[in-house]
């Protein structure tokens, strides 16, 4: 299967109220084995998935937020966060986990994976994809 497609995983929901975020993340991780050109988008309540300092103990839910920190090691290095979604929720990039990856084309320099972009720019990136997975 030599085809390489542009794939975007679109995350639209808060992390712990439904199972979509956790099971969506499982698809991303399995997908890394296929060596496609992948990125993720966080829109709407999806921005809560990568919030810093998540503590699920009182809710009795599994805290899978540390898993996002491993994405860089699996070459998932572009995490687009919609600016409007952050603003609407009173959040800024400082509220998000400082997710990074090591750039093999730049002497393994550590770089941020999270890119906060406006809705219009995100829609253009979305339109350029071959496959969208919505969670």
């Amino acid at each position: 299967m030599p085809t390489v497609k542009k794939m975007m995983y679109v995350n639209r929901r808060a992390p712990h109220g439904t199972g979509y975020a956790l099971e969506g993340l499982e698809v991303v991780l399995i997908g890394t084995a296929f060596e496609q050109e992948v990125c993720m988008a966080f829109i709407g309540d999806g921005v809560y998935q990568i919030m810093q300092g998540q503590d699920t103990r009182a809710a009795g839910m599994k805290n899978f937020s540390p898993t996002y920190k491993a994405l860089g090691d699996y070459d998932v290095t572009r995490l687009y966060v919609e600016q409007e979604s952050l603003s609407e929720r009173g959040l800024s990039v400082d509220d998000l986990m400082p997710l990074t990856y090591e750039d093999e084309d730049d002497d393994w320099a550590e770089k941020p994976s999270v890119q906060v972009i406006v809705r219009k720019e995100l829609s253009q990136i979305m339109a350029a994809q071959d496959v969208l997975f919505n969670f």
Partner: peptide, 20 residues
Amino acid sequence: SGLGQLIEAGIVSDRLVEFG
């Protein structure tokens, strides 16, 4: 079967249509 079957479907199909 596994999630790889979903990724494969995305790769080999002209359209992947999601219902949810």
